[in-house]
Amino acid sequence: MQTIRQLPDLRDAVSGFRAAGERVAFVPTMGALHAGHMALVAEAKLAAPRVIVSIFVNPKQFAPGEDLARYPRKEQADSRMLAAAGVDLLWMPPVEVMYPEGHATNIAVTGVSEPLDGAARPGHFDGVATVVAKLFNQVKPDIALFGEKDFQQLAVIRRMVADLDFDIDVRGVPTQRDDDGLALSSRNVYLAPEDRASAVALPRALGVAARAIEKGDDAQAALATARASLEAAGFDVDYVELVDAASLGTPVAGQPRRLLAAARIAGTRLIDNVSVAEPE
């Protein structure tokens, strides 16, 4: 596995793949890798003969007071995991390469970025869209893979790719979970054992609400019950919402729906989501 930190070297390597007629699958990450990331890598290896993974903790998607400084960084362990998985190239640019002096361009994807985490974390998705657009221009992949755990992020990226005419196939990969159902996340390492035990209330509450809605129960009542159960488990809830899976707006009859939630436990913010079928 090549590890590259400078843009000219990356472009030379990618040009070599292209000269050999090889398609490229790309997995952007912020590191602190876990089985969820490795599921993306496994899908990437099935999708193309060359796989590139990036690790970059993007300062533009962290608001003041969020966990940029303490976000877990495990470059050596991450590198070993990716090499063992057969990744061809690890792109690890420093901040000054991604955002050189004078950088002044920001990408805002309106609409889909505005509710949910967009409301709870102003500016977050501008930072996501900007860095992903830059990564796409640097790597120039044929296929890019993102986890469905960050469902709104995936929706924002798909909207940006469509609007800006990126010739990239963006694929979502199902959320990977621990045995008790908690979605895998790099931030789970922040949780003390007792808080980790309580955190399973998040996927359980979403599952109960989704099943109730699918049975035809009143959606707002199901969402209120989910919120109450999370608060009883010690969560401070940002939102629990049922939305249209594409627009993240009001659900539309006959269109895929998604139930999304974000909540904090012991200061750690967790997100999760599940699909919701039409009532039986």
Rank of each mutant, 00 (worst) to 15 (best):
residue 275 S to R: 12
residue 174 P to R: 15
residue 33 L to N: 13
residue 131 V to N: 00
residue 120 A to P: 01
residue 249 G to L: 07
residue 255 Q to R: 12
residue 217 D to L: 14
residue 30 M to T: 10
residue 205 A to D: 08
residue 263 A to G: 00
residue 262 A to W: 00
residue 176 Q to D: 06
residue 226 A to N: 03
residue 20 A to L: 12
residue 224 A to K: 11
residue 153 Q to Y: 05
residue 164 L to N: 03
residue 153 Q to N: 09
residue 72 P to S: 06
residue 173 V to P: 01
residue 271 I to F: 01
residue 88 D to N: 11
residue 123 G to R: 07
residue 156 V to M: 00
residue 190 Y to D: 04
residue 46 L to E: 13
residue 177 R to S: 03
residue 22 E to W: 11
residue 228 A to F: 02
residue 190 Y to P: 02
residue 275 S to V: 15
residue 176 Q to I: 13
residue 228 A to I: 10
residue 186 S to D: 07
residue 85 A to E: 02
residue 79 S to E: 14
residue 147 G to N: 09
residue 184 L to G: 05
residue 218 D to A: 12
residue 35 A to I: 09
residue 141 P to T: 13
residue 266 A to D: 07
residue 57 V to S: 03
residue 36 G to R: 09
residue 227 R to Q: 12
residue 50 R to C: 04
residue 170 V to C: 03
residue 27 V to G: 02
residue 205 A to V: 11
residue 2 Q to H: 12
residue 246 A to W: 15
residue 216 G to T: 06
residue 188 N to E: 06
residue 239 Y to S: 02
residue 254 G to T: 06
residue 205 A to S: 14
residue 173 V to W: 04
residue 179 D to E: 14
residue 29 T to K: 09
residue 52 I to W: 09
residue 156 V to F: 01
residue 252 V to R: 07
residue 263 A to R: 01
residue 159 R to K: 14
residue 79 S to W: 15
residue 169 D to P: 05
residue 108 A to D: 13
residue 21 G to K: 12
residue 67 D to F: 01
residue 156 V to G: 00
residue 42 A to V: 10
residue 52 I to E: 06
residue 91 W to V: 14
residue 117 D to E: 13
residue 5 R to L: 10
residue 138 Q to Y: 11
residue 220 Q to I: 12
residue 176 Q to R: 12
residue 134 K to M: 05
residue 270 L to F: 04
residue 57 V to G: 02
residue 8 P to E: 09
residue 217 D to S: 15
residue 197 A to C: 06
residue 140 K to P: 05
residue 20 A to W: 12
residue 54 S to C: 04
residue 98 M to P: 02
residue 13 A to R: 12
residue 177 R to Y: 00
residue 253 A to E: 11
residue 105 T to R: 13
residue 100 P to K: 09
residue 218 D to L: 12
residue 181 G to Y: 10
residue 61 Q to V: 08
residue 1 M to N: 11
residue 141 P to Q: 10
residue 116 L to E: 02
residue 176 Q to E: 15
residue 53 V to K: 03
residue 18 R to V: 11
residue 14 V to Q: 03
residue 233 A to L: 10
residue 75 E to I: 13
residue 29 T to A: 07
residue 38 M to R: 12
residue 76 Q to N: 13
residue 267 G to F: 01
residue 124 H to T: 09
residue 89 L to F: 05
residue 10 L to H: 06
residue 187 R to V: 15
residue 197 A to I: 10
residue 196 R to F: 03
residue 250 T to R: 08
residue 176 Q to G: 10
residue 170 V to R: 07
residue 172 G to A: 14
residue 176 Q to Y: 04
residue 272 D to E: 14
residue 102 G to N: 09
residue 257 R to Q: 11
residue 100 P to M: 10
residue 19 A to K: 11
residue 197 A to E: 14
residue 56 F to K: 02
residue 127 G to F: 02
residue 20 A to Q: 11
residue 36 G to S: 04
residue 185 S to L: 15
residue 3 T to M: 11
residue 73 R to Y: 02
residue 160 M to T: 08
residue 247 S to H: 01
residue 202 L to H: 06
residue 213 I to M: 10
residue 184 L to N: 15
residue 35 A to M: 09
residue 238 D to E: 10
